[in-house]
């Protein structure tokens, strides 16, 4: 095949389709830097003519609530990530390495738990948490999000553990490691890429959660940015530049994580989520 020639033609087509596909994300940002009057221009300005950052100034920097929402989102997302990794890493290790009875059953249960509708979990959580005093608490939201991310995390981490030869475990044992120190000092450092992948996904799960936050909290001081954005939809109606500014801010951590960890995210997705 004439790789060179068709290569550049294909590249051109690929750039075109990528731009077309990502147009909505561009449109989100473009809308956020337009003045209100330009939103209703007909035909719409595909490239903003008057650029203003007023929507950001107004809604993000001058609005004390938004900073609170952002802080809450970070707390919930990081909490979900830490709790999930702490629970998932040893479990995934044990499921690949150690002599366990009922390994197959546990794996099937993990797969099955991925198909639970969140709404099916939310109602029992609501009743359970109201009895445990966990409504309106970060801990409650972190627990709820972890139930969703934990099975996923174990399933994605498993292939990473499998890829490390068990000779290493034996060598560590000869050097006097017990099972915990083998896991903690020898194996865990080796699956750093896996932990990064899973950590990134858990953060994204926690950051994006809407349903649990809506149903398990009532106080604005606990609620994350996703609910803040939802509240703005009700308040602002068609002030799309303001809404898109908040949406863009909510998207920024996702974009940053994505750019820094994209290699891990793509490989984690393909290696663990499906083939297993």
């Amino acid at each position: 095949m004439d790789h060179r020639k068709s290569g550049y033609g294909a590249m051109f087509l690929a750039i075109l389709s990528t731009i077309l596909f990502l147009f909505p994300i561009y449109w989100m940002f473009a809308t956020s830097i337009k003045p209100m009057s330009d939103l209703f221009a007909s035909p719409p300005h595909l490239i903003p003519r008057d650029v203003t950052f007023a929507a950001y100034l107004e809604n993000v920097f001058k609005n004390p609530y938004i900073l609170g929402y952002i802080g809450n989102s970070f707390l919930i997302a990081c909490g979900t990530m830490v709790v999930t990794l702490l629970l998932a890493a040893p479990a995934a290790y044990a499921l690949t390495r150690l002599n366990l009875r009922g390994k197959g059953l546990i794996l099937i249960l993990l797969l099955a738990s991925q198909m639970l509708p969140n709404i099916m979990l939310a109602m029992p959580f609501f009743i359970l948490f109201s009895k445990l005093g966990l409504l309106n608490s970060f801990l409650g939201l972190i627990i709820a999000n972890t139930t969703v991310s934990l099975p996923f995390a174990v399933l994605v981490l498993r292939p990473f553990f499998l890829s490390i030869p068990s000779v290493l475990d034996d060598a560590a044992a000869i050097d006097g490691c017990n099972k915990w120190t083998t896991f903690w000092r020898v194996i865990l450092p080796l699956i750093k890429p896996g932990m990064l992948t899973v950590g990134a996904f858990c953060f994204l799960f926690g950051w994006g959660d809407f349903l649990f936050a809506m149903l398990l909290t009532t106080e604005e001081s606990i609620r994350p940015l996703t609910l803040g954005l939802y509240k703005f939809i009700g308040q602002y109606g068609t002030q799309w530049n303001n809404l898109m500014a908040v949406a863009t801010v909510a998207a920024i951590p996702i974009v940053i994580i994505f750019i820094t960890l994209q290699k891990y995210i793509v490989s984690g997705l393909t290696s663990g989520a499906v083939k297993d």
Partner: peptide, 10 residues
């Protein structure tokens, strides 16, 4: 993949 990773609310 960015489209898939965006929080649904956005």
């Amino acid at each position: 993949l960015l489209a898939w990773l965006m929080p649904i609310v956005i």
